[in-house]
């Protein structure tokens, strides 16, 4: 039992950076932009979050910085694709290369300035990032560890997902945004400010990705700087969007399932089941590829990518 609890808790933690990346990408794709820059935006969030945390020793400021850096990366992407109508695939790839590159340049720069040759977040902020402890609740057996002993990121991620789901399903603005991703001509003709909403969603989505990036360096790596800290999670997030069929609530459990796949290899009894580690690492991608094929084969219209995804919008093109 306690083994199971440990596994679930580990899966949730491993899935949390994915949750942020996925939610950010959902916000992009919902306004019709397939943004392959998630990895880059997460990297930017990681470096900004880390460096601000390192300098200020303030968790809240670090989170804001991570959000701002991801959002700034997304803003470049938005300018290039929304206003200048460039190809989404190429712009996204560029953002990834640019983001990772910039992250490593800054990290290298700071590493060069440190005396020990390593960078570690100070004590105070490390305390704040630790798992919460709510007296009473956290100590309840089973439920305590399963629900009330995570680090703050986990709760922030879930709250964002729920808010997004409410936004898309129950507000007028959410309806308008979904309309943009499906048919920007229709949304524009109905009086929705297509370009403005695209900017807002892409930029906020990028900010959310940035927080996920901060997670990778603050939690996964325990606050010690390494280069390439996001390590491909951004790409899994792009995959997860498909798995979640573009719905924020599905992203919650989807990312925890993917988190479970990431850590599965540490929890399987190697004496009994002989599967090479590489296959566990491959699993999320394999599963996503299969889902992608199944979704396309079944042609479920309501579970497909927003119809206008990957295309640019110019009002006078009809």
């Amino acid at each position: 039992m306690s083994f199971m609890i440990r596994f679930i808790v580990a899966a949730v933690v491993a899935g949390t950076p994915l949750l942020f990346g996925t939610l950010g990408e959902i916000m992009n794709e919902r306004v019709g932009h397939l943004n392959l820059g998630v990895e880059g935006m997460m990297s930017l969030g990681a470096v900004a979050g880390f460096m601000v945390g390192y300098r200020t020793d303030n968790f809240a400021l670090a989170l804001i910085a991570a959000f701002a850096a991801g959002a700034l990366g997304a803003l470049i992407y938005a300018i290039v694709t929304v206003t200048f109508m460039a190809n989404h695939t190429v712009a996204g790839l560029t953002l990834t290369i640019f983001g990772i590159g910039l992250t490593n340049v800054i990290g290298f720069h700071y590493l060069g300035m440190s005396e020990s040759g390593t960078l570690k977040l100070p004590e105070h902020i490390t305390q704040q990032m630790r798992a919460v402890h709510i007296t009473g609740l956290s100590d309840v057996p089973v439920i305590g560890p399963l629900l009330f002993q995570y680090n703050p990121f986990v709760y922030v991620g879930i709250v964002i997902a729920v808010l997004l789901a409410l936004f898309y399903n129950f507000t007028k603005a959410g309806l308008n945004v979904r309309a943009i991703g499906e048919n920007p001509q229709a949304a524009d003709a109905a009086g929705v400010h297509v370009l403005a909403w695209k900017y807002v969603n892409i930029v906020i989505g990028g900010g959310i990705c940035g927080i996920g990036g901060a997670f990778t360096i603050m939690i996964t790596n325990g606050g010690v700087w390494i280069s390439d800290c996001v390590g491909g999670l951004g790409w899994i997030a792009v995959a997860l969007v498909i798995f979640a069929t573009w719905k924020p609530v599905n992203a919650i459990w989807g990312s925890f399932v993917f988190g479970a796949m990431r850590i599965l290899k540490y929890y399987v009894n190697k004496e009994i089941i002989h599967i090479p580690d590489a296959f566990y690492d491959m699993l999320p991608f394999l599963v996503t590829a299969v889902i992608l094929v199944l979704v396309s084969a079944r042609q479920v219209r309501d579970k497909a990518q927003p119809a206008a995804c990957g295309t640019n919008y110019f009002r006078e093109d009809r």
């Binding site: 397939l34 392959l36 695939t89 491909g232 790409w235 899994i236 792009v238 995959a239 498909i242 090479p276 580690d277 590489a278 296959f279 690492d281 491959m282 991608f285 394999l286 996503t288 590829a289 992608l292 094929v293 396309s296 084969a297 042609q299 990518q305 990957g310």
Partner: peptide
């Protein structure tokens, strides 16, 4: 898959990249 079901090739090839990468790890280990 694109021919048969119009499966999105951008996302599908993205997955294949990582599957290939882990194949090397499998062979190496």
């Amino acid at each position: 898959f694109k021919n048969k079901w119009n499966t999105n090739e951008t996302l599908f090839t993205l997955m294949l990249n990582y599957i290939a990468l882990h194949l090397i790890a499998f062979l190496r280990d």
